[in-house]
Design a protein around this nucleic acid. Structure first.
Lengths: 260, 260
DNA sequence: CTGTTCTGTTCTGCATAGCAGAATAGGGGT
DNA sequence: ACCCCTATTCTGCTATGCAGAACAGAACAG
């Protein structure tokens, strides 16, 4: 499964703060590079070297950067690790789910994944590929709009409808493929079906050649809500296949809940 | 092993930027809490509600926060997950080392850990406790000065001496316990012994009742340098024990390298 | 229904904070 | 010695960031 990368879609604030904008842009740059020089930073965000230096020093004060005294270059700082470990606290669900997902892939001989909601998107946090020569490929860290993806839809179905409505304020939803559902009313109807059926089904809505089913791991409020998905090349996906896979996903999800 | 929590030890910059300071403080608050209201943020960082709102909106613009339209509270945004996971890319070493560390603990019946360098400190990123009734306890995320800890020393021994000297610019080092080595010259001498012996030994230098050995995972330049440590209650630690454990740590470290 | 309270959001005058550019400092090379 | 490069320090000045006031909306009580 190849999914789209997408930035956060917040609009510009009514009262922006220029210096904070620069600092946060720099933080993003720093988190993606292992090493950043003052002059690179200056060029990268379009400020004088003196300003870049001051911003980097502020990032260092708060632990987001650390300077190597020999090379004088700045690198990601301890605070990023701390944030990562805090985020991992939720991602420790992966340790619990990994063996279940591996067994599931053995059982159904298709690729399977673990996904969470992040903003209005689904976010892929673990993946196990089928051993078949032709299989759906995966990328941990990949994203897609929650409304278009089976895992995302399964997770949205756990929320009240008015929550979903406020997450997607426009009736018209941005299509990913020509098969993507593009109306919020239709989405709400789909979510009702997910609730009834117990799992979500998406055919060619994120990737034209891929069909996916998804089922939520029942776990009350203990951890970030997560879902298990199974992806299959579309040409292999009869209606019976998708039902069978949906039930397999549900069983695996229940096994994860029981293992926690 | 109980280790000290310590904030990043950067000093205040010569030319601080107040608005950036406020924004980064707020970012730290947000990364530790699931939900933050404008009025809470205002109180937390000591600014007017209008300023708190503007700062939160800037954080949202860059994906670090997201507001729930129903409750209007802000929560951590997708960018926190992204920068955290980017920092953890290096920490995927944990998946490789976990089984080796678990086998090590089975073998020596003492607690073992995986540590990295973070700034001038060692940072605990994985831990497996012994099943003995009396064992050294652990806390992932814990820190101690690199010069005082076995894992930190093992990692420092991989660096050139002049690098170590610039990391610790003062001859006098801050003691953690009355047994902590407090002179940089002595540290340099210790690091030479670590290189000769193949592993580091620290007795009561971080925690009075604990002795620890540490050995670096040989891995060239592929990943962040990491070390495996074994901690034992001091009263159980003869010199032969520490040598035996040091060799066990080295064997485990080599197995990790072979597994990568 | 009206009035009250609470919280988030918008607006604006003003003073000082943030900025760029210049100067300085330090290291390395010829 | 001089030159080059980069990080760091310094400072005048203007426009940015701030707090406080006003507004808007929701919820609750009588």
């Amino acid at each position: 499964m190849t999914v789209l990368d997408k930035k956060a879609d917040a609009s510009t604030p009514n009262y922006p703060i220029g210096s904070v904008d620069k600092a946060l842009r720099l933080l993003r740059v720093l988190s993606e590079d292992r090493e950043l020089r003052v002059s690179d930073a200056s060029r990268e965000i379009g400020v004088a070297r003196s300003t870049a230096h001051r911003l980097l020093e502020m990032l260092q004060l708060h632990g987001f950067a650390q300077q190597d005294p020999l090379t004088r270059a700045y690198a990601p700082g301890p605070a990023l690790l701390e944030i990562g470990l805090a985020a991992l606290r939720n991602l420790d669900i992966r340790e619990i789910t990994r063996p279940v997902i591996e067994a599931l892939v053995e059982e159904v001989q298709e690729s399977a994944h673990l996904v969470i909601l992040s903003g209005t998107e689904m976010f892929l946090i673990d993946a196990v590929e089928s051993k078949q020569a032709l299989r759906v490929g995966t990328r941990v860290g990949g994203r897609a709009p929650a409304y278009a993806s089976a895992g995302g839809r399964a997770l949205l179905a756990e929320l009240p409808d008015d929550r979903v409505i406020s997450m997607f304020p426009n009736e018209e939803l941005e299509p990913v493929t020509p098969e993507t559902l593009t109306s919020r009313t239709e989405l709400i109807g789909e979510l009702a079906k997910v609730r009834e059926r117990g799992f979500a089904v998406c055919i060619a809505e994120v990737e034209l050649d891929v069909a996916t089913v998804g089922a939520v791991i029942p776990n009350g409020d203990r951890l970030t809500p997560a879902a298990i998905t199974i992806s299959i090349p579309r040409f292999r996906a009869s209606e019976d296949d998708l039902t069978r896979l949906g039930h397999a996903a549900m069983r695996a999800a229940r096994r994860c809940a029981g293992a926690a």
